[in-house]
């Protein structure tokens, strides 16, 4: 069965091409690029909301993009059970829309963080089913606002419903603490209640080719396809 997918581009998106390359390399179906001013999404299995600095990240990261024309149909897509993957700025946008719990605030050390980080699976979903428990993935992060915050009741909700997909952890020869940005409970990525939407700060689309410093990013798309 052919797997169709799309990537939305906002003004200021800068990982849209990377996401398109990732999808084209690892899926067998059509891959479309959708401009944020479109009214509707084509009929696809997966939509990636890519990284970048949509609308300059002015006001708050993802705030303006969350009000774009295309968002209504993105919400429809999710209601129909379609998959959505928000990466970095895409995660921030999905939080701003309200499709995911919590918010992403400035990194605890107040600095942009661009490096490889290490994550592992917390609770199972279609996005990480091929990943073993305790398997450590090396995937780059590149963000200034990746510090996941939610209040206690939302945190309980995330745990009770097993919605935490990924958490930061220590890596081999890692020169850093596990929690790179101050996120509550080391959260690196969460899903919605139906587990068809994943938002994550690390960039799997920068870790899949043989010349990348890691190929672990493949596992997320491959899990979805399995």
């Amino acid at each position: 069965m052919s797997f169709k997918s799309a990537v939305i581009t906002f003004p200021g998106s800068n990982c849209d091409r990377d996401a398109l390359v990732y999808l084209k390399a690892l899926t067998n179906g059509e891959v479309l690029n959708i401009w944020h001013e479109e009214n509707s999404l084509p009929n696809v299995d997966l939509v990636i909301v890519p990284g970048g600095f949509s609308f300059g990240d002015y006001l708050r990261s993802g705030a303006m993009a969350s009000k774009s024309k295309i968002i209504n149909d993105l919400i429809n897509h999710s209601k129909k059970g379609g998959y959505i993957l928000g990466i970095c700025n895409g995660f921030q946008i999905l939080s701003e829309i309200g499709l995911l719990k919590g918010a992403l605030i400035q990194n605890k050390r107040l600095k942009f963080l661009g490096k490889n980080c290490f994550i592992k699976k917390r609770y199972q979903s279609d996005f990480n089913c091929l990943i073993n428990k305790d398997q450590v993935l090396k995937i780059p992060v590149a963000h200034n606002e990746g510090n996941f915050y939610c209040d206690d009741s939302d945190l309980k909700y995330l745990h009770d419903n097993e919605l935490i997909a990924f958490e930061y952890c220590e890596g081999k020869f890692s020169n850093s603490i596990a929690n790179i940005n101050g996120s509550i409970d080391n959260i690196a990525g969460i899903t919605n209640k139906d587990k068809n939407i994943l938002g994550m700060m690390p960039h799997p689309e920068r870790a899949f080719q043989n010349f990348h410093s890691s190929q672990d990013g493949k596992l997320i798309l491959e899990s979805l396809l399995s």
Binding site: V21, G51, G114, H212
Partner: peptide, 19 residues
């Protein structure tokens, strides 16, 4: 000097071979 270059995005565009 990772304190310096970790403040830079060195892998965007997906074609970086040496950071």
């Amino acid at each position: 000097k990772s304190w310096v270059f970790n403040q830079y995005d060195s892998t965007v565009m997906g074609d970086t071979i040496k950071e």
